[in-house]
Simulated scan of single mutants.
Amino acid sequence: MKRIVIVPGNGGGDVETSNWYSWARDKFREEFDNVEVLLKDMPDPVIAREKFWIPFMHDELKCDENTVIIGHSSGAEAAKRYAERYQVLGVVLVSSCVTDMGDESEKESGYYNRPWEWDKMKTNTKWIVQFGSTDDPFLPWDEQQEVADQLSTELHKHTDRGHFMAPTFPELIKVVKKHLTV
């Protein structure tokens, strides 16, 4: 069975009430009868340390070669590091970057302490989609563009979505639906 796993950003608190996460989960469940959709509170939700998130994604969320991982912000960084190690069906990166940008909390997460293994990510996924916005208050566009360039993502570039923290995200549903019904 195919699975969609939504991995939230850090610091959002309860995933049920944060951003578009539960809205997207519910929309995906309406769209797909034969796809399991998972959204769970992550361990270590404030710092989002890789050493806790990657094992949780593997052991608890059961991400595998039939899984689409949708990662937002820190969740996008977790999705990339996960795809370096494991095969997944697809990855959707929302507000993804390449450095900690000098932020101590981001540095502590562990995602940025070594080079990104872009080729492994590409090898371990069938497709990679990216959503970014030039008006993101946390991520400069050049960080997001580097992700797109390194991974040859299907880039959905916006100018007015900030850090994608709205309560709905209709474009996400359309894009994932397109990839899962091909």
Rank of each mutant, 00 (worst) to 15 (best):
D41F: 04
D41L: 10
D41W: 03
M42V: 15
M42F: 09
P43H: 04
D44C: 10
D44P: 03
D44Y: 10
P45A: 14
I47E: 11
A48P: 01
A48T: 12
A48M: 10
R49C: 13
R49W: 08
R49E: 12
E50N: 10
K51G: 08
K51H: 09
W53C: 11
W53N: 06
W53I: 15
F56W: 08
F56H: 08
H58P: 04
H58R: 15
D59M: 15
E60R: 11
L61K: 10
K62A: 14
K62N: 11
C63R: 07
D64E: 12
D64W: 13
E65T: 10
E65N: 14
E65I: 13
N66F: 03
N66M: 11
N66V: 08
N66G: 09
T67V: 10
V68G: 02
V68T: 02
I69G: 00
I69H: 05
I69A: 05
I69W: 00
H72Y: 02
H72T: 04
S73T: 05
S73F: 05
S74E: 10
S74K: 09
G75T: 04
G75D: 08
G75H: 00
G75I: 03
E77H: 05
E77Y: 00
A79C: 05
K80Q: 13
K80D: 01
R81E: 10
R81Y: 03
E84A: 12
E84L: 07
R85T: 06
R85F: 03
Y86D: 09
Y86A: 14
Q87S: 14
L89A: 06
L89D: 06
L89R: 05
G90I: 11
G90A: 08
G90T: 08
V91M: 07
V91N: 01
V92K: 02
L93V: 11
V94C: 12
S95C: 05
S95Q: 04
S96K: 02
S96F: 01
V98P: 00
V98L: 05
T99Y: 01
D100Q: 13
D100Y: 06
M101T: 07
